[in-house]
Design a protein around this nucleic acid. Sequence first.
DNA 1: TGGGAACCAATGTTGCGACATATAATGTAT
DNA 2: ATACATTATATGTCGCAACATTGGTTCCCA
Lengths: 149, 149
Amino acid sequence: MKLEDEIQQRAFKNAYQKAHLNVVFTAGWLQQRLAAAFKPYGLTLPQYNVLRILRGQHPKPATVNLLIERMLDKTSNASRIVDKLEAKHLVTRQICPSNRRAVDIRITEAGLELLRQTESLADGQSQGLHNLSAEEAAQLSDLLDKIRD
Amino acid sequence: MKLEDEIQQRAFKNAYQKAHLNVVFTAGWLQQRLAAAFKPYGLTLPQYNVLRILRGQHPKPATVNLLIERMLDKTSNASRIVDKLEAKHLVTRQICPSNRRAVDIRITEAGLELLRQTESLADGQSQGLHNLSAEEAAQLSDLLDKIRD
DNA sequence: TGGGAACCAATGTTGCGACATATAATGTAT
DNA sequence: ATACATTATATGTCGCAACATTGGTTCCCA
């Protein structure tokens, strides 16, 4: 649907304002769909992303610092997201022996299994972008990169 | 900066996955900058957006329903955002005489004045997109519209 | 080696998104 | 007119973002 109709706004000041709103609105649209896909598994998107990072490290542990570095949202509260995952026994937390300030966080077998079950979800959702051609998707990425230059 | 560096991820499965992440990441980047611009004025972005809608209606009142319809995020809690604005005397709330279920919400003079002071902020931020040409911005919007088709 | 700087994680607070439920007012059908 | 559905808003709960602060640990160097 055209942005004008989605947000009930008739006109935009210029192409920049419209593109700005469109990026924000489309991101929300994508995230909402993705979150809905993970909901049946009791996972929120931030929790899913942390699990993915932990799987990437497996069987090595990760620290909270490493999670923050790797997360899309640097200012999120990784520590409290790990709380939730720990309560669901999807990760373990253990004081790092070589540096007792840090905490070793590891994904459990249950966590790995849950990721296996949800394997196709994220890809499936990215394929919501398949009304674009691969070239258009690449072009979109380039334009977005340019914004943040 | 290139997305790969921003999120410390070396490779993407395909152009679709990369574009998906890039939309989400760029939206967060834009919103964070915009929120920072409004912070000195004690306004959050949802509060600002509600004020803008109310100015659009002024001097007619708006209802909570109308706010929800017009907001980017339909599932937000408009009622509680109005609470915050009311506490800051930027809006007034009054039971609608002709339909006592509804509530007439109006922007106050203080609210209008605050919008005047922040007039340039949103535009200024959209101009963060000015490393794009107007054509590129339009093209970006078209690609995003296509995603949501 | 003693003390302050730097580091790492946890916690407290505020505001919002998502979702379910409550409460009150209005509309409608018989 | 009464019962029932519908509408409009408010409220409760959970999880997360943003930001500040705290507490414990390690580092470094004078």
